[in-house]
Each structure stands twice: as structure tokens, then as C-alpha cells.
Design a protein around this nucleic acid. Sequence first.
RNA 1: GGGCGGGUGGCCUAGUCUGGAUAUGGCAGCAGCCUCCUAAGCUGCAGGUCGAGGGUUCGAAUCCCUCCCCGCUCGCCA
Length: 570
Amino acid sequence: MDALGHFEEHIRAKVAAELAAMGFSGEIALERPDHELADLALPCFQFAKRLRKAPSAIAEELSARIHPDERIGKVWADKGYINFRVNEAVLSALVIKDALERREDFGRGDPRPGKVLLEHTSVNPTGPIHVGRARNPLIGDTLARCLRMCGHEVSTEYYVNDVGKQVVLLTWALEHLTEKDVPPSDREKTDHRLVGYYQAANRLMEASEEVADAVAAMTQRFEAGDLEVIAKVRRTVDLMLDGIKESLSGADVHLDRYIYESQFILDGSAHRVVERLKASPYAAIEDGAYYLNLEGFGVHGRDTRFFFTRKDGTTLYTTRDLAYHLDKFKRADEVLNILGEDQKLGQKQLACALRILGCDRAPECIFYSFVSLPEGRMSTRKGVVVYLDDLLEEAVDRAYQEVCSRRPDLDDERKRRIARDIGVGAVRYNIIRVQAEKQLVFKWEEALNFEGNSAPFVQYAHARCCSILRKAGDFNKSADVSVLTDPYERRLIWTLAQFQEVVRQAGDKRRINMLPTYGHELASALNQFYGAVPVLRSEHQDARLCLVEATRWALRNALVTMGIAAPEEM
RNA sequence: GGGCGGGUGGCCUAGUCUGGAUAUGGCAGCAGCCUCCUAAGCUGCAGGUCGAGGGUUCGAAUCCCUCCCCGCUCGCCA
């Protein structure tokens, strides 16, 4: 538990004891109201009926029974509420000391048992990542960082789709088409060079039966287990994946492992899943193809039939995903997936099939809605698309212009490094700040926002702290911080005290949008403090420097948890 | 049509799980603030039927019901 947690527990216990003495037993849930109002509060309306007294009278009586102590600073009743202010001198000392001692680990939770396996990104390797899909790696990578900060051991995986019509089609295209058949690519990256082949092949297949037949034949050889074709497809996929990995790395997204779908065909595990499902009482067959009857499993209407083989006996995507999940469960205690909302039914069916297989576990899925463009849904084939690479490049360019105009004193290498931190950070922040379920319309002006609720705002606050610290040089890190009683100082300390709890909740609730919200709040508190309270050459210089350094670590760690760089100058 | 998710000032958004005091911020707009630690900042003003209606409750953006709008989905695709 963090410092603030102990204060809250202490107050809760006192309130519970006094309420018990008054004749009430039960859960006591303290609130954290607007900080202007109080630090902690308890509405007393809920006790009125049981105690047969007016809420305001209960609040008055309770507040008279509870006295300030080591942790409680002030208690008072107001409009049916009993309000608390914690002992701020004690809290300040604890929080600031904690930050100055733990530095990079400030806000980090105690190690938690169990391994977490988080699958994210897993985009089909048929083209570059576009911003519609980019939500996946950004949410996934941030959640992984957040869970690690919470104390979890986390490994991340990208499930590579190297099976099926689409990747076979791409492979066919690379064999049969030449540069003349595709429009020139504006980038040298393999994913951008190859996507033209994929698009051209799609058009050809629609127009020509011959091509369609050729691709179908190749798909059949693949399904039949033709190792030559499988290897060929695998090479194509790897080519495309190289470009995708480069994009991910450009966004500071890093995955621990890449798992190929074909693995589950080759090692026979997908086949074993088929055999076990066939033997279940829910299995049925239609025209040679097997399915599970999921009626009574919470799926409705036409969705109840879940096919797990084709009529030729070959496996389907979800069948292989089943094998993959069985494998995941062997390797981890908690299994999380970040998926597009189009996967919901498939995941529901997968969960049912898992139960039928006698498996009592299921992956926990976080679904995100798609990002569309003002002109409509993104489509690689129609060319209605903004690639992640283009967004990142534009953001970094814009940031570079800003840095150049603000900091002509810096050398170019430094300016470029800062521009990269800011541009990439702005993109990540903008995607992450919105709840995953919310549908999002991509707008350049919003994506490239460097002010207000944005990564640069938080980074700027961090750079400000660093700048002050740089100018200050050595100072007394054991200074008495009880002198920090200005409203701006109190608010900043109070915000600092929330940090670990925010990270914990963001991880536990899988609500990573709490991170940017908090980052902005902290940065805002710092900026207001900065504007109103002098640090250097002030009477409380050392105490304030302690506060600035504590804030610096919280800002830095909040940024790093979001996968955003924390530049020391900008 | 069924299932799932979303709907909060002109635009974007927090809060919804776990009901409580004047609904969080940002963008855009208006008015101010750089002889002083980085103005990517700060201060102030203006802007709201929390999609609509009913219900539960001392109290509803939050819980329940009905309806409307938007998205996704309902393949022997992946």
C-alpha cells in the first residue's frame, strides 16, 4: 500500500469504530471529493434510516467523536457529510521522501505473483499498419507497461497470421507480378513496397477467373500441408512483418514474442483440438463440415453454429486460435487479448469451445472500436487510409519545426531527438487518452495537437522541473517539507500522493486512459505552482526543490508508463 | 431483425463498474499575463435538457425498463 492508502485505512477504521458505537455496522466507503472541498469524505445520508437521525446530526456527532491525530489533520461536518483533511505535514514528508528515494520506481507496486501473457497488435501481415489498427499496439503496449508498473510479470505476443487466403494471395502476387504491375511506393519499407502487390492481386483476382483459380490452387496446396508453399508464404509474411516491426518500433512499441499461426497446424495441436471437439456432445456435421451447437451457451439466433472445420477437414482461424490459447494457458496465469471489436463474436465462440474442451479458463479481452476517417471507414484496398508511418513522420516533422522556432540555441542532433520524443509521444497520447470502446474519428489537427491535454504538455512540465533542478545544483534533500503550505504546493503534493493508486487502478481495471488523465492533472498542478510560487532564491528553496524533484519523478514515471519519452529539455 | 458497444457545451473528452456536495478537462472563441526558475505555460470570461421518456431512491450522468441515433457483428474468411 502507498502512503496515502495508510491514511485512508486509518480514517476508515476510526469512522467504522465510531459508527459501530452508534449502532451501525457495515461497509464504510470513503470518497475523494473535489480537493477544494476535502481530502476524504463520508456522506451520512445512508445511515439516516438505520440510526433514525438526520444526516446532518449524524455527521455532527461523528465529527465530534473523531479527533485529529498523527494522520488526521482536521475533521468537520458539512451538509450531511463528514469531511477529513489528512495531516498534510506528515503526508508531504512521506510522499516526497518516497519519490526522492525510489526515483524511477516511484509509483511502482509491489511484485505480484503469477505471469501475465498479453497478446496485442496481431495485425494481418498484408500491408502497413494504418491508424485504424494502430489503436491496438498502442493500447496493448501501454497496458503491458502499466501492468509491469503495477508489479506484474508480463510478456507480450503478436499472433502472426501466416495462414489463409490473404497471405497466399500476397505470396502469389510476389511471384507473378512485377514492378510494372504496381504503382510506385512512396516508401522503401518492405510493407509499403509490398502492399501494392497485394492491392493489385486483389483486383486481378476479382477480374480474372484464371488468377482466382491459381490462388485457390495454391491455397489448397497450403492447406494440404505442402511444406514448400507453407515456407514460401512464411517468407512473404516475414518480409511484410519486417516493415510492420519497424513501424512499431517507430512508435516505441516492443513485443517479446512473435507466434506464427502455422505452428499450430504443423505441430498437430490444431488437429488435436478438432478431434476433441468432434468427440463432444455439442458437435454436429453439415455437408462434411463440423460445427459446435452453442445454443444454451449464451449465444443467440444464427450465431449458435460455430464451424471448426471446412468440409475438406481443414482447420479454420478460430480452431487454430483455440490451439494457441490452450498453449497460452500452459505458459501463463493470466491471459489478456487486445482485439478489434469485430472479434467479439469469435472470442465468445472461442470461450464456449474452451469450456466444451473442459478448459475452465478463458482469455480476458479488451476490445477497441475502430478509428475511421472523416470520409468513412479506413480501407487499405480502397486507399482510404492513413498509415501509422505517415502519422508518425508528420508528427515528428511538426515537432521539429516547433523545436526549431522555440530553441534555436540547440544543435540539430538534439533538436531532432527532442522532436522525435515529442512527435511520437503526441501520437501515442492522443490514441491512449480515449476509452478503448469509444469510436474515434481521426483528424490531423487533433492528432498533431501539442497543447493542452497532450503529451507535450506533460513533457513540458517535466522539462520545467529538470530545468529548475539543473539550475539549482546540489540542495538539501532532507529539507523540512512541512513548510509547503501554499495552496499550489498542497494541491501538487496531494496529486503526487495519488500516483501509485492511479497506476494500480489503471492496470487492475484495464483502463489505461486514466494515465493520460492523471498525467495532465499532475502537469497542470506543476504549471500552476510554477507560475505562482518561486523556487530558486526563495525562502523555502530546498523544500520546494524537494517538491520539484518529487514531481519530476512522478511525471517521468507517468510518461514512461505510457511509453512516452520524458525529455529533460524541450 | 438478433447480439454487443458507444451517445456528456460548436468539436473532442473524464466521471458510469462501486449512486452523493457546484458534472472533469482540452480544442476552438473572447479578455488579460513574458525587465523574474522554458509562454508547448498561466489567469479570467463565455458556453450544458449528461441522446429521449418513464421508474427506483432522501439523492441518478451513474442503477432498472422502453424508445431513438451511430458503430461493430451475425462466412465451411482471417
